[in-house]
Design a protein around this nucleic acid. Structure first.
Lengths: 198, 198
DNA sequence: CGTCGCATTGATATCGCTCAAATCCGGTGG
DNA sequence: CCACCGGATTTGAGCGATATCAATGCGACG
């Protein structure tokens, strides 16, 4: 089980406390006084709200390496539920510590702004990716925008099933798309590494 | 033509310069040294990149009241093109002024973090919305997450065609979906106002 | 070994996209 | 004042891509 806690500013790391949550447990609930920002070091968290008829409205999926509830410093209470979809460990940073760091440590403030800006940019790219209709074009978009080097290499995090859900596809559709693209000479696949050809 | 410049911290407003761009003109180009962050006070801007075969990859649409290139303080050059899709006026804040403000004005830093957090949250919701397969469920998700009041009212910005593209649907599909939902008593429509029933 | 989850491929159904045509509406110019 | 025009809206018909259901192989892990 791969775990990571990269991309977390060191100033925050020292202020953080680690928690473990079994699959299906609540990390926080709607209406609870907001206690801070969370980093997923391992696992997966779903942020959701319940509609009037009790239907689920998913607001966000936070996966390993991502953070969530970063807006909790702006509101006194959480306005959604956070549920561990997998066995999950999170780092929690209290809101007031974050606020104090932002106010007192300009260097940290810059880091935090950087982090938010980067996430925003990445998320916007995801939006554009998801508004592409063709499955093959989505994969291509992922490689072009997230790939490194001249060949647009991408190391798939987790399983192809995870990648499929990130791309908004059924896993079957992704499998099929990848094999056709490979057969047509559009991409190369070696293990969980994807490369663009041409 | 409605124009607004709300949501812009006053500290920024004074550091900003206004520019007007006719439809189709470039606000900046890929590779250009990054000169700052932009707010759309009127119009619409498309951020795009060219793929390896010259195909267009749209990264983001910034509309009236939104900002873009907020990550330009982290990179020396723009890595996409910004094109005015409509006649557009923007406020431009230079990166170094923004950085200085962040370092020297803790109150402004907090505002900026707030702004980024809010945009990030909204964009994440859009991601979840776009990964829903059913058109009706996308509309419902929009109403529940963006609606105000007990009835989840939403004032459509611009045309229904614009809404369709925001929802990742063809405009025909959106028209049909809205009428079926209305016929089935799921929503109400009055002009460009949408409401959820029940 | 047995089980569980991922990966893969097949068959079928369905929903939304595309093309097409008609209407409506606001604005513009004569 | 009215005719005209362009864009938005609406509805129809047919098709195609992806979801869904299903079955199988495979590897890890207890």
């Amino acid at each position: 089980m791969k775990c990571s806690s990269s991309d977390i500013p060191t100033a925050l790391r020292s202020a953080a406390i680690e928690f473990s949550h079994p699959r299906g447990s609540y990390i926080f609930r709607t209406g609870t006084p907001s206690s801070g920002v969370f980093f997923v070091t391992c696992g997966e968290v779903r942020l959701m709200r319940r509609g009037r008829q009790g239907e689920e409205i998913v607001l966000h999926h936070a996966r390993t390496g991502e953070f969530f509830a970063e807006a909790s410093i702006d509101s006194a209470r959480y306005h959604c539920d956070a549920i561990a979809v997998q066995p999950t460990t999170v780092l929690k940073v209290s809101a007031h510590k974050l606020v104090r760091l932002l106010a007192e440590d300009p260097q940290f403030a810059a880091q935090w702004v950087s982090l938010l800006s980067g996430q925003l940019r990445a998320t916007r790219m995801r939006v554009e990716r998801l508004s592409i209709k063709s499955a093959a074009e989505r994969v291509r978009h992922l490689l072009v925008t997230n790939g490194t080097g001249p060949r647009c290499e991408v190391q798939v995090r987790g399983s192809l099933k995870d990648l499929a859900s990130e791309l908004g596809l059924s896993h079957e559709a992704l499998y099929r798309t990848l094999s056709t693209m490979q057969r047509d000479g559009q991409i190369e696949r070696h293990g969980r590494e994807l490369r663009l050809i041409r």
